[in-house]
């Protein structure tokens, strides 16, 4: 446990020791603003909620989260520090978890910095703050899912660009599996159970219900399982590839 904490602290400090953290946060806040006010029509809707804010999170995360996760392991492999880390008295699981939690905490910080949005909507009207809270929780869980995938992919390669591109593609497929374009294609010939199964793999399906304020154990379980699965795969990949 204390090893996870040491690795977590080092990693999180690492984000703020380089411009990465500041660039990411500024761009994240800028884009959420644009999406919410211009594309989401925050004012035009005339409703006191943050639906237009949360609606675009999956698409923002699709590009921004792999930008965070791409360096998690590929940089360790490229600089050789993976050899240092793996010969310290820590287990592989502790290392993977510590680094993942640091990246997750960093996205939580970026997400928390969107609080002016929450203040604005409370100033203008009387929103249901429970729904907004669930929206934030759902968004954070989804970010965790994206990060776990990205972390695993970044262990596959020393090249951060490759890690980024592959992560984006995988995350894109997982988002897409909840969209009607894809689902309609299956609906035409596949039984309903198959369509439901495909749609249940999607981030969107689960994120949609949470952001509407309905917190279902199954949605939380979905993200929990997804994160656990990809982090476990992450340990296997590191074990396999660390020699190279």
């Amino acid at each position: 446990m204390k090893n996870i904490l040491s690795i977590f602290k080092r990693e999180l400090r690492g984000y703020f020791a380089t411009p990465v953290a500041y660039v990411f946060i500024v761009i994240f806040l800028f884009l959420t603003g644009i999406f919410t006010f211009y594309i989401g029509g925050f004012f035009e809707r005339g409703q006191a909620d943050l639906e237009p804010f949360f609606r675009f999170h999956p698409w923002l995360y699709l590009f921004l989260i792999p930008a965070i996760s791409m360096r998690l392991w590929s940089e360790e492999r490229k600089s050789g520090t993976i050899e240092l880390l793996m010969t310290l008295p820590v287990t592989l699981g502790e290392a993977v978890l510590g680094k993942f939690l640091a990246a997750w905490c960093f996205t939580a910080i970026a997400l928390a910095l969107t609080f002016p949005m929450w203040i604005t909507v409370n100033y203008l009207g009387n929103p249901d703050n429970t729904v907004i809270l669930f929206g934030y929780l759902g968004s954070l869980l989804m970010a965790g899912g994206f990060l776990a995938i990205g972390s695993c992919i970044s262990a596959l390669t020393k090249n951060q660009v490759i890690a980024f591109v592959i992560s984006v593609v995988i995350c894109f497929l997982i988002i897409l599996s909840g969209y009607s374009i894809v689902l309609d294609f299956f609906r035409a010939w596949a039984p309903q159970a198959v369509v439901d199964a495909i749609s249940s793999f999607s981030f969107l399906t689960h994120f949609d219900s949470i952001k509407k304020g309905v917190i279902d154990a199954r949605d939380v379980l979905y993200f929990g399982t997804l994160i656990a699965f990809w982090l476990y795969a992450n340990t296997l990949v590191i074990d396999m590839k660390k020699a190279g």
Partner: peptide, 11 residues
Amino acid sequence: LPEGAPAYGEM
């Protein structure tokens, strides 16, 4: 001390 003395450069 691994070959090439790797360390976290930003620290």
